[in-house]
Nucleic acid binder design. Sequence first.
DNA 1: CAGCCATCCTGGGGGC
DNA 2: TGCCCCCAGGATGGCT
Length: 312
Amino acid sequence: MPELPEAEVVRRGLERWTVGRRVETVEVLDPRSLRRHIGGPGDFVQRLQGASILDAVRRGKFLWLPVALASGDELALMMHLGMSGQALIQGDDQPDERHLKVRLGLSETPDGLPGQLRFVDQRIFGGMFLDPLEPTADGHPGGRGALGLPLIPEHAAHIARDPLDPDFDPSAFHAALRRRKTGIKRALLDQGLISGIGNIYADEALWSAQLHYARPTETMTRPETQRLVEAVQDVMARALEAGGTSFDSLYVNINGESGYFSRSLNAYGRAGEACPRCEAEGRDGVIVREQFMNRSSYRCAVCQRRPRRARY
DNA sequence: CAGCCATCCTGGGGGC
DNA sequence: TGCCCCCAGGATGGCT
């Protein structure tokens, strides 16, 4: 399930393999992957053909390639991996993937890089679309236009900075939490508050910070928020180092390889197993699985106790 | 306006 | 072996 670390692995691949190249051909094999492109598949193909790829940028789980169109306009080729999206670099002779949705034929390079960028997506929660770049007040490096202004795609402007962004502000995050009236896990999953966190890393960070998912945000103390932010940053940095979390072949990097962070998870997917912290400290805590927000939540029944006042 | 929830989607796995 | 139901969950739009 691609969250921030997995998206960052893909971004690095895009940066290395596609920046500086031109999009020569565009083939849409399933229009459902372009659902969010307003003009439809025809418009997508027509505008993107001949575009030059300038950069590879990410905020939270959103990825985009700032491109210069043949017309001279600069905009963002947006990409979201959703549940099962993959961006793959493949040679022209590689057989089509079963769930291949969009194929971009890229210009040749002196060192003979593979010729295609493919968007593959089984569950079609992800997709691609072209999005105008607009000026951003806070200096996020989403690509720079002719006037040198920092730009961000219109549909990423509402996404908060993520915990690995050097300009992420823990104090502002704490203040925002205190203003909210909801449970802490809901807040962690709210991409407008803090971005890049999905179900897996939310559960891992809450386990690490010893917080229950229904803890009311308005009662979070400063030290608790600090612990939580550090836990998120730590788990994401370690996941990134391991190439991301993958339970099957659905999440892979740009060369089709799975990360191996799943073996390092402490709570997620470990219902019935001993809590690693409790085990180390001589208690008998067990990881339990509960339905919350229409998905599974994993926590230790002993060291992540339900708060007296809970918010779901 | 904030909070919350249904909806989109497919393949793998378990039960019978 | 085949069929049916459940499960996975990110973002969005609509409802309260």
